[in-house]
Design a protein around this nucleic acid. Structure first.
Lengths: 277, 277
DNA sequence: CCGGGCTCCTTGGTCTTACCAAACCGGTCA
DNA sequence: TGACCGGTTTGGTAAGACCAAGGAGCCCGG
């Protein structure tokens, strides 16, 4: 009978909802969903809800954000896409970040002014694995033209200004070329995800790795040679060197920018207790 | 196109509710969204729309499926989640499968009665990479208890019936244990995705790999030993053997079931027709 | 003839109201 | 004690309307 007093543990404030462009009907610019999404996402990622915990109902959220249920639903769907929420009849539940999708990486990295060094390094580790493997397969499967194209890219990188955007672009292009040519779709999909969630955003935020020139060039030159000989193992080994230099460069860059080293501690929330409430 | 005066702007009264539900509308019902989603997804994956092409507008789709725009929107959002559609003002566009997310793998594998052998093998290749790397890190980082737990799992696998569900479960648990303990979140997220999209569904469909017992046991025993000595490289090498045996087993199983070997040919394909403007 | 600017229409984004079905909760009755 | 029942809560869907951004086509000055 009675209005069910606030269900979810309070603590979270009503969210001011500053002025937005208002129209005749009190509608605001298309951005409602984004507001709701960003707020809830960050609240979850910063551990204000625990895994297994229930989010307020769609109707409650709509009231809290002073918007319609439809907009809230859109936001919730995106949370579900990120893998950090699960919509079911009976209520929306929070999912542990460890069970989420690759796409949480972006938001996770953006939680702080400077991306966490440990997390970034872990991503680099995975990217290295994939690039090395794809390079190996590339050396085995590529046509002569594709090999030639890769070598030309490498020449371009070696002859260009080490830190310039064009050179960086070629480095990215080389990785993509390996990935696309080696024919491994899943690998490519993962690399896509990492690029979108990580590489691209890191570059945008000014953390493009600037590898130590000498070691980088030496390693790249080895790749260049090994490709000509189609020596898959040599290509893989040389690419490992390249990626190691890259990885170290990024680590140093983040270090210099004062990054945290929280790693898994970034994601909050001790183990879920029960499933309820 | 005259615009009628705004109809509603009055304060909304709570609600009359309570009382009797009048079965007025003949709303048909369950899973409208799922229907739309499945249809469009398969149409895209089978190449009936080409990348870059526009999908019909939400209103048109609503008419075609005899449902509301809301339901269509929900479906489109999920297509976007899969990474094979991009919703923008001006129209929904189809995205090349190569640019999608990991989550297309599931639907892609389910397109055929027997999953494509090449695609499955590629997934196994990626899983191997990840498991091997996580095992290496595990050997370096794990506590004594965690090492012990892993060894106990291995003992369990070795002593259990090779093909039994319990043994399979332990094999999966071992991989997860490595993955969770090595502390690499991105790697774990990827492995999650692959497990959900691939391993789980393969098992459900009866394609659980049954590795050749002798080689499998020998390799696993090496892992068991190497773990005790905390020899990371030996662990990695032994796990590579394990995964190779697994990979071959799955390949043979799919072979026997008459799987296709289309690989990348699964996806693109020019157009059976161009039914869109 | 060409390019820039303008208008109109389409399209996605949001809002509102309303009903349904499944899940959940509490009380009743056997 | 345990099965049952009804009301409540919640997500799922429906339908109609309005808004603002994009795109396409048209017009006009150069």
């Amino acid at each position: 009978m009675t209005k069910p007093a606030p269900l979810h543990d309070g603590a979270r404030q009503p969210q001011p909802r500053a002025a937005q462009p208002r129209t005749a009907h009190g509608r605001t610019a298309p951005q409602r969903t984004a507001t709701v999404l960003d707020t809830l996402r960050d609240e979850i990622l910063t551990g204000q809800y625990r895994p297994g915990e229930r989010l307020p109902s769609e109707r409650e959220l709509a009231a809290r954000f002073e918007t319609s249920r439809g907009a809230v639903r859109e936001a919730l769907k995106k949370l579900e896409q990120l893998g950090i929420a699960s919509i079911q009849k009976g209520g929306v539940r929070v999912v542990a970040v460890e069970e989420a999708t690759l796409e949480v990486l972006g938001p996770l990295l953006e939680l702080q002014a400077v991306p966490d060094a440990v997390l970034a390094d872990q991503i680099m580790q995975v990217m290295s694995l994939l690039v090395i493997e794809s390079a190996r397969d590339f050396a085995l499967l590529a046509t002569d033209e594709q090999i030639e194209y890769a070598r030309k890219l490498i020449s371009g990188i070696l002859s260009g200004a080490p830190g310039s955007p064009e050179t960086l672009e070629k480095r990215v292009a080389l990785g993509r070329h390996f990935m696309e040519t080696c024919g491994n779709l899943p690998m490519r999909l993962i690399a896509n995800g990492l690029r979108i969630q990580f590489s691209q955003k890191m570059t945008d935020r000014g953390f493009a790795p600037r590898p130590e020139p000498v070691a980088f060039r030496i390693a790249l030159l080895k790749v260049h040679t090994a490709l000509a000989e189609r020596d898959a193992e040599a290509v893989a080994a040389a690419m490992r060197e390249v990626m190691q230099v890259n990885r170290r460069a990024l680590r140093d860059a983040l270090e210099a920018a004062g990054a945290t080293h929280r790693g898994l501690d970034l994601i909050p929330s001790p183990p879920p207790r029960g499933l309820n409430r």
